[in-house]
Structures are given as structure tokens and as C-alpha cells.
Design a binder for these strands. Structure first.
Lengths: 253, 253
DNA sequence: ATTCCTTATTACTCCGACATATCGCTAGCA
DNA sequence: TGCTAGCGATATGTCGGAGTAATAAGGAAT
């Protein structure tokens, strides 16, 4: 799991080649893409803005032009910027951004995420996950149910306060998605879930969970096991609503 | 649509720059990313496969290492491949791919798209678009309605057989999405709609549309205008189901 | 059998040069 | 005066090569 999360990433503070101290395994262009991506997502560069030329920018970052260019290619691939000869590299309008790209989501949540954006994300989750639960109820097989059951057991053993517990939570939701036999659903929800995971950190830090989430998960599980699509959808809907409520409280509403 | 897809790219003898003939405006690394992306999506390279080294591959393509590397960065950004020193560049498992990335979708539909994948895409569309229509019914303002109305009029004037008509169709659906005031919904559905647009070409080529799609669109519009979320959802659901039916027929069931 | 270390391979980074496309200007024309 | 067409300046695009760093694999020592 790549933690793009929280290091200061002081690359461009001083001009004289302060070679970015980056954790091993992380490539230089990746670090630059991260830095630029966060800068764009946070609004430091607004849509329509033109970045300084390749030579100037790469020099100010203390890296070669190649590394900088590869970073820009990454941003281009995610729809954040567009480069043209003589015109320079400009930030694209927001509706061209691949907001559902895992990296873009991570960058968006590196800073303080826009409240409206988070709301939209939960709205999408509230649409997709209940529908996925309904499909899962119709298509799950014995293996799917076993994975869900094991994940529930793990959630009971550890609590959501531990990393193991949260991993089990993710595993449960992932099992539900996979049971839909729809790859696009899996990919989409995985991205959202990851992004929502970032907010969970806020939630945890704000206050301990006042409510026991296990019974709600069990309700989803039993509906899926029984093949009751409508009930599975309703139960999952309830789960997402509760998560949204918690996040709202944690983010100062 | 320019198809750079299949020139043998022979370096042959010495030299006269067998520069891949590519449409102007398209960068070389973009063309290579396209080529590789299509190759991966079509299964020519299976997950777990290792691509030949940078030097070998770039030489066999007749391009510099820089261009090849930038192309690989694009694929990496979309989750298709991963490269590590000494290990080489390997194709990632399918569940790591950003299947909802517009480019990835385009690459997937460049070859003959997998029938199961198309089914999953329509399933997702059948989940998202009706829900979006419901939200639009609650949040639309007068400007949204005017755009939808104009798009409907344009659809009536030109038919879906003309490019102008299809553009109006897209504009209508896009207006519905924008009326939800949810950026993530817009981005997601725009990607899907684009991909579905590729299949529409198949549909058109198979046979002329036997049914007049206008009344169904009008039903969606009127429900949204009336603020009737449930009816808007149902009407949109009907629209998507019909589209799926047509596509199924066109793709040989 | 396990652990540690050496080594070879590969991607990563950098550099400097040239090619190419595009924008903005200027001159010519209606 | 307004418009079009040519032209030059500039920033991105492409190239080839050299050197560095990271890692997987195999061998040595325990």
C-alpha cells in the first residue's frame, strides 16, 4: 500500500538543488507528480493557469528536465494538465480531471478536502454500494459468504480502533463488491472506499466511535446470505448513511 | 478517428527515420501508450507478463528511450503496469487497472470489447444514471431545464443517425448529470457514456434504429422538470435498459 | 536449513543537443 | 479599416548516451 499521505515533501523550497529526500522505493518523478498533484488539487494552481516552462520549473525543483517531464506525463494521464508546444503546460478545467483516479483522490485528501467534494463522494457511495449489495445477494456463492463471515469475525475480534479491524472492514466490503461479478463496480468502489478511508482517520481522531458497527454489518451479511436483494440494499444503505453521519460530525459538519 | 494501431514499425535498414506516421497534434509517447494500452487491454500481454527491457523495447519500436519511458509512465499512472529496477516492467493484475479511466475505456473498445465487460459497464450505468436523474429532479434549476429542452429539440431535428443528433443526445444526458451538482457523478457518467458511445457505432452499423427514442427522453425530461424524483429515476432506468437491449442485439446477443 | 552478502541486471536520473509545432506579430491585400 | 497570409521566436517534443541506484537472484558462511 503506497502511503502518499503526509510527508511534508519539501522539494522546491530552496533553489540550489535540495535533492528531494524521498523514501526508498519511491521514484523521483512520482514524488514530483505527487507534489504537483497536491498543489493542483488544493487550488494552488487554478484551472487555466500556466506552469512555468520545463527548464525553469525543473531547475527550481532541482531535478532534471526528464524527471519533471515524466511527472507531467502522469498528471496529463490523469487529466489534470495539458501541454502544447509554445503554449506551455496549463491546468485543465475541473471537469476534465479524473476525480475517481485513486491517486487523484489521494492527492485531494492530502490537503484539507473540500466539504462539498466529500459530500459528493458519499452521495456516489450511497448510490453504488447499496446497488452492489443487491447484486451480491443475487450472485454470491458459498466462497463469497465464507470470506464475508471471516471478515466479520475478524472485525469482532479486533475493533475498528485497530488497523487489523479496519482491514477486516475493508475486506468485508471488498468481498461484497467482488460477489457482484462486476469488475467496474469493484474498481469504482475500491477507489471511493480508499478515499473514504482517509476521512476515517479524521473521524477516529475526532472521537472514539460511540456506536457498535458490527450489528449493522451482520444485517448486510445475512441479507446477502439469504439472497434478499432488497433487504441487502436497504441494510447497506443504512451502513453508508451512518458512515456519512459520523464523517459529517468529525469534519465539523 | 485516427488509428495508429498497426503499422509494423520497421527499422529495416539504416535509417530514414521510420517515424511512426501519426496524426498531427498527437505526441509520440501518446501513440506508444495507445499502442501498448490496446495491447494490454486486448490480452496480448497478460497480467504478470514482463515487457522486454527499456532499451530492447524502445529500439524495436524505433523510438528513443525517453519517449518509451514517458509512455510507460502513462500506463503506470493508469494502473496497467508497474516497473521496478532489476525486475522489469510487468503487467499488473486486472483489479489494479483503472477501468473507469477514459483512455483505458477507449483502449478497451479499440479492439473487440469483451462482452462481459460491456455488460458490467451497462450494469453500472443502470445503477448510476437513474439515481442521477432522481437527484437532478430535486436540484435542477431553470437553466438546467432549458439546456435539456434545447438538446431534446436538437435530437428531434437531426436524428440519432447523424452526428449532430448523437451530440445532442450526449448533451441531454450531460445536462442531467450536471444538474445533480455532483462532480464525481458527472465525471463517472461521462466516462461511461463515452465508452457506450463506442458501442453505439456497432449498434448503428448493425441496423437502423427500429424505435423512436424521443418519447422516452421526453418522459425523463418531464419528470425532472416536475421535480418527481421517483418517476425520473424510473424513466431513466427505462432508457438505459433499452440501450442495453439494443447493444445486446447489435453485439450478437 | 537459514541467514547474510555479493553481484549482475535493470530501471532511474541526468545532460546537452536538435527537431517540431504553435503562437503572436507584421506585412500585404481587399 | 479589417482581414488574411507569411514569418520568426519560443517552448515543448524527441533523441542518444553516460552514470547512478535499487533490487532480485545466486552463492557463501553460519
Amino acid at each position: 500500500m503506497d502511503d502518499t499521505g503526509s510527508e511534508p515533501s519539501e522539494i522546491a523550497t530552496a533553489a540550489p538543488a535540495p535533492r528531494a529526500a524521498r523514501g526508498t522505493g519511491r521514484r523521483l518523478h512520482g514524488a514530483i507528480a505527487h507534489k504537483l498533484g497536491v498543489a493542483i488539487l488544493s487550488g494552488e494552481y487554478a484551472p487555466g493557469d500556466i506552469l512555468s516552462g520545463e527548464v525553469a520549473f525543473s531547475e527550481s525543483l532541482g531535478v532534471s528536465r526528464s524527471a519533471y517531464r515524466e511527472a507531467v506525463q502522469v498528471l496529463t494521464a490523469k487529466g489534470l494538465v495539458e501541454s502544447r508546444p509554445k503554449a506551455g503546460t496549463r491546468v485543465l478545467p475541473r471537469d476534465r480531471w479524473n476525480l475517481l483516479d485513486p491517486d487523484v483522490l489521494a492527492w485531494a485528501f492530502t490537503g484539507e478536502p473540500d466539504i462539498g467534494f466529500v459530500r459528493g463522494l458519499f452521495e456516489l457511495r450511497a448510490i453504488v454500494e447499496p446497488a452492489a449489495a443487491a447484486l451480491a445477494a443475487e450472485r454470491r456463492d458459498r466462497a463469497d459468504l465464507k470470506i464475508m463471515k471471516d471478515a466479520l469475525a475478524a472485525m469482532r475480534r479486533h475493533t475498528l480502533a485497530t488497523e487489523a479491524g479496519r482491514a477486516a472492514d475493508r475486506e468485508f466490503h471488498d468481498a461484497v463488491l467482488r460477489a457482484t461479478r462486476n469488475d467496474t463496480l469493484v474498481v469504482l468502489s475500491a477507489s471511493i472506499a480508499a478515499a473514504v478511508g482517509w476521512t476515517t482517520q479524521f473521524k477516529q481522531r475526532a472521537r472514539a466511535l460511540p456506536r457498535n458497527p458490527i450489528p449493522d454489518h451482520v444485517r448486510v451479511y445475512e441479507a446477502i446470505a439469504a439472497g434478499d436483494a432488497a433487504e441487502a440494499s436497504a441494510a447497506m444503505r443504512h451502513l453508508v448513511d451512518l458512515a456519512l453521519e459520523d464523517t459529517k460530525v468529525a469534519m465539523g459538519r
